[in-house]
């Protein structure tokens, strides 16, 4: 009987990191899409960086930042008393950084499609920028939210290098499907590699079908 735990871990990781990522990426994208501030172009380039960096480079820096002496890892350790590296939470955070541009891009496209006069109307009607975000921008960017969720999810499902750097390969904790496949192949256990790979292919294909469907007919306001 095949061991499905890496696949289940991948699904759990993708779901958790996608949800948290959307919550953080949506306001960030709102600021990038509509805000006017110095250094915006620098922030934009920084957000896009994971698209072009080798996962090992990103993973290496995350290893430093999430480590006990790193900024995030240090704070986390001080609060919880637990390390971040080689834990599930650690790979959730790493995945979020890696998938950030995949969430920001569709969100931004959807936000920028919203008629700016709607935001002006909202302001005149008494909405603060934050109220306008919740009452006007988000409801009119549902298509973008779904696309962002799907892309971030799919990207995290297939992630390998960053997770290996930050999480290692601890069964049940950080040994996700892509890493398990790699190890099966290394151990010449092709049968298991085959099964797990096929499962990933099917899941990814279904996700992409969903994207196509949403782009064609299921969109709403974006």
């Amino acid at each position: 009987m095949m061991d499905f735990s890496p696949l289940i871990l991948s699904l759990r990781l993708s779901m958790v990191s996608t949800v948290i990522l959307l919550v953080l990426a949506a306001p960030l994208t709102y600021v990038l899409a509509y805000g006017r501030f110095r250094g915006k172009i620098l922030v934009e380039a920084l957000v896009g960086l994971p698209l072009v960096l080798p996962p090992t480079v990103l993973g290496f820096y995350l290893l430093l930042v999430l480590g006990p002496d790193g900024m995030i890892g240090g704070i986390w350790q001080a609060i919880s008393g637990q390390p971040l590296l080689f834990t599930f939470i650690g790979i959730v955070i790493a995945s979020m950084f890696h998938s950030l541009p995949y969430a920001v891009q569709p969100l931004r496209a959807a936000f920028e499609k919203i008629d700016p006069r709607l935001l002006e109307t909202a302001a005149v009607l008494g909405c603060s920028p934050m109220a306008a975000f919740f009452r006007v921008v988000l409801p009119n960017a549902r298509g973008g939210l779904v696309a962002a969720a799907v892309l971030a999810f799919a990207h995290t499902m297939g992630e390998f290098g960053v997770i290996l750097m930050v999480g290692g390969s601890i069964p049940g904790k950080t040994r996700v499907a892509s890493i398990a496949i790699y190890e099966y192949v290394e151990a010449l256990r092709y049968h298991e590699a085959w099964q797990l790979s096929l499962a990933l292919v099917v899941i990814s294909y279904v996700v992409l079908l969903l994207v196509s469907y949403l782009n064609r007919g299921g969109r709403y306001g974006a």
């Binding site: 008629d115 006069r117 709607l118 002006e120 109307t121 909202a122 302001a123 005149v124 009607l125 008494g126 909405c127 603060s128 006007v136 409801p139 009119n140 709403y220 306001g221």
Partner: peptide, 19 residues
């Protein structure tokens, strides 16, 4: 800012919230 002025503004078109 506009949200503190307490006014009504009717534009030429397309400013109702589509959702």
């Amino acid at each position: 800012p506009p949200q503190k002025r307490g006014l009504g503004y009717v534009f030429q078109e397309f400013t109702l919230f589509p959702h």
